[in-house]
Each structure stands twice: as C-alpha cells, then as structure tokens.
Amino acid sequence: MTPRDVAVVAFARSGHHEPADGLSEAEMLLPVLHDALDQAGLAPGEADFTCSGSSDYLAGRPFSFTLALDGVGAWPPIAESHVEMDGAWALYEAWVKILTGQAGTALVYAHGKPSSGDLRDVLTRQLDPYYLAPLWPDPACLAALQTRALLDAGLIDEAALLTDEAAPVPSADGHPSGTPHAPGARAATDGAAAVVLAAGATARRMCTRPAWIRGIDHRIESHALGLRDLTDSPSTRLAAERAGAFDAPVDTAELHTADAAQEAVLRRALRLDGTVTVNPSGGTPATDPVMAAGLIRLGEAAARIHRGASDRALAHATSGPCLQQNLVAVLEGEPAGHPGAEPEGART
C-alpha cells in the first residue's frame, strides 16, 4: 500500500505576547488561526478535522482547551480532538487521521500562557508524584544535570556553553559561567501557533510548494532520570529512524531544546553535521510558548520549505524532563521544475 501523501501547507504563529497584553487564550489564538486558514484558503470550521495541544496545568484551569474552541468556529459541529501535549503531537494525530482517509484537510493549533503561573513550579508537577515532585526540582535544575553529564563525558566543552545565549548565568559565588547549575529559568513567552495539513492534490492547490511529511514518529523513554543515560537520546534516534531521517541528508533542522547541551545531545542522536543549518528560524525554542514550541519547530521547518529555502528538513519536538519524549518529522519540498500537477487522486 502506498501511504497517502500529506503536507504542511500553512503555518502561522503569534508574536511573543506580553502578559500585559491581557489577552484570553481565545483572543491570542484567533488571529493566528485566521492567518493559517487564510494561507490555505479555508474558512473557519471548514477543515475536515481539527486537533489542538495545550495543558490545563499551564493554564491553572481544568478543561482550559474548551475556551480556545470559541475561536475556531465550531459550527456546524466539527470533527475535533485535543491532546494534553505539545501541539506537535496534535499534528501527529491529525496526520494519522488524514492517513486513514477520514479527512483530507486538518487544522492543528496549540497555545500556552506560561506567564499565568510560575513555570518553575508548574513543571515540577509533571514529575514522578511519589519520589520527585515532593522535592520540587525545577526544570532548569534537571536540564543542568544533563549538561554536567555531557561535560563529564567530554561531549561538550564549557567554551561552547559560553557562546550559548541560552547558557546558565554565572552563579553568585563566582563559579565559572557555563558550568551547569540551575539558573533562574528564562521566562517563556505567551503565544499560539497553527498549521494546516492537507493531502495530495488538495495540498498542491493550497500551497505552491507544500512541505510533504515524508515521515513522522515519536518515542518515549523511562521517566526515571537515574535510569537513563542523560548524554544520549535513544528515543530521538529511534523516532528519526522510523521517520526516515537517515535515508537521505537533510539541509535544515529545527530542534526543540532547552539549552545548548540538549542541542548537543540531539545533534549526535540525529547525526547532524556542519552542513545542516540548525534552527535557522532564529528561534529560541526555550522561550517559545510552552505547549506550542514543538509545533512551532514543525511549522518553521515547513515554512522554510514553502519559501524554497530548504528541500529536506528535519523538525523535532520534545516533552518531559531531560528530553524524555521526542518527536521527529522529515519534511520535503519538491525539486524546482516539478510539474506539481499530477491528476487528482493519483497520489492519494
């Protein structure tokens, strides 16, 4: 069986919102949805399937995703689902839905207002509730454990960290900058992102150069940090293999990381050499809106293909402490001169 061709045909993201903007999640999301839908030539509610990613804990309210639905135009009622995960996994669910043949187009969105709470406290709640959460170890501390493990293993050096804008700040006792310690987490911003997926000929009609999803896969690892090799990311490697990332070289990689050390782990797991442009979007994934940051990596990679700046790009999203869960997608644009006008249904 030939798998159905599915592409990212539109991507939109908000600017970084300041808490003082005073927007509700629906208000933050609405212009982003319209931007993505306009690019694809879809009206609100017109996509065959809608899927979103967000977190109640981030919002401080149960069922927080229901409020965002006000911006979608869910009338007449729509086929819709939601993952309590980064929007990258909402994209995965939508991709599967299109593969089944039940949908030809899908709207995927994600939103987060980390400014509502203190992320350093909130994210401790996603740790083992018996052994870890009672200690309130904040995410920056956990990331720094990973950095130390990499330094010890000689896989990164302190000089590299010094040039990293995302590196920890010097400690009060004058400890050398770049040595891993728990910094005050850099504040993630509020925002939203949206992507439109479409299959086959529909994708070609909606977008002059669709970013075809050649493969997408995600894998999880043990939650226990003391059990894992923090210098490696076997789940990323496996997801990349299953997504076909190693079948041919990529020219671009958009990586969802907390800091330079995690980028080093991923570069190794994904076998990215100096020829690959990493995070050309200028993105600073660590400050992207939580729950949308992974979807933004996928969207930025796709947008680069749309613009003709990449022919084959890898996009990565992560979730959980120290890269516990990872998603890898491989996106491709067709070579210049491709007729792009196959008969309707030929590839679907």
Binding site: R120, D121, L135, W136, P137, D138, C141, L142, A144, L145, Q146, T147, R148, A149, D152, S171, A172, D173, H175, T179, P180, H181, A182, G184, L230
Partner: peptide, 20 residues
C-alpha cells in the same frame, strides 16, 4: 551527575544553596 542550585526555591529540600 549534579547541578549547582544557587537560589533554592522555597519548597526545595534546603534553604541554602545546594547541588541537585
């Protein structure tokens, strides 16, 4: 492995700077 925590937060195990 370890990470220095120069500014413990109020519910963490120690009040003075410590290492995770």
């Amino acid at each position: 492995t370890w990470a220095w925590n120069p500014a413990p937060r109020h519910r963490q195990p120690l009040r003075t700077p410590f290492a995770w």
